[in-house]
Design a protein around this nucleic acid. Structure first.
Length: 262
DNA sequence: ATGCCTTGTCGCACAAGA
């Protein structure tokens, strides 16, 4: 059996519902983690997605952020929000456990803060959010179960993940502090699914709407699937659904997908 | 040139994204 998992920042469910439904029908992921639903739970178009055979779990808020999990079968142990700061009300994490006849996989879907502009409190918020995620996942790894952390990390890991490093110099997505925390996070023992499966440099998951970035392939790789050792043992392959960026009403991000032997 | 698009908000422009 193959468990097909996808992650996609859809940039607004209301504006993207038709695009999302078409993609679900074409790609048929077993589980999809969505970011930037930009909707409260009550307004999420659950029924339309359920009609395609998905169970829908949302963690939304008004106007911004918001994450969701879609699954072809019911998920267990749903949890919403990142622990570690009771004053943080931004909806950026949803997780669940997928139980199949061959085993279980814990899936954490994240929308990591952008962090710009870096001279505002948004940058320290990003860095502290990364610290909290680090501590949370460090603890989770002690369970020694298949675990993946998927989503929009808002981190350009290296110069190989950006069309023009100079253009992104100083940006919160490319700042050394952001990259260092991302490396430390991976060094907990996580494997980057795309790196280990594909490995080619300059493969992107985001192209700005502005200045013909898509047409010029001025992209960045900021959506990632990281895997615990136990999940890596089940890992088959990973790819980026790039074509959808050139279709009608695209999100500025494209889906990143992975198959697991589960 | 913190712009060039796009989205959401009780809009008549603005904030936020990356």
């Amino acid at each position: 059996m193959t468990l097909h998992i996808a992650s996609w920042n859809i940039n607004g469910i209301k504006a993207r519902i038709d695009t999302l439904l078409a993609w679900l029908e074409a790609e048929k992921p077993d589980i999809a983690a969505l970011q930037e639903i930009k909707s409260i739970d009550e307004n999420f178009p659950k029924e339309q997605i359920e009609q395609l055979g998905y169970h829908v779990y949302t963690h939304g808020q008004k106007s911004f952020n918001g994450v969701a999990l879609l699954s072809k079968f019911p998920l267990e142990d749903i949890s919403r929000g990142l622990p570690g700061d009771e004053h943080d009300l931004q909806a950026r994490l949803i997780e669940a456990r997928a139980i199949t006849e061959n085993g279980a996989m814990r899936i954490i879907g994240i929308y990591l803060p952008n962090g710009n502009p870096v001279d505002t409190d948004k940058f320290p918020y990003k860095l502290s959010w990364m610290d909290r995620l680090h501590n949370y996942v460090k603890q989770a790894l002690e369970e020694e179960e298949p675990l993946i952390i998927v989503g929009d990390y808002n981190i350009i890991p290296t110069e190989n993940d950006v069309h023009d490093p100079k253009a992104w110099w100083g940006d919160a997505l490319f700042r050394p502090e952001s990259q260092e925390k991302f490396r430390a996070f991976k060094n907990l023992g996580l494997t980057d699914a795309f790196e280990t499966s594909d490995g080619r440099p300059h493969q992107y998951t985001f192209w700005d709407y502005q200045a013909g970035a898509w047409q010029k392939n001025n992209g960045i790789r900021i959506d990632h699937i990281l895997m615990s050792p136990e999940a890596t043992d089940l890992f088959e392959n990973c790819w980026i659904d790039k074509e959808i960026r050139g279709q009608d009403k695209p999100s500025d991000h494209v889906p990143i997908c992975a198959n697991f032997n589960l």
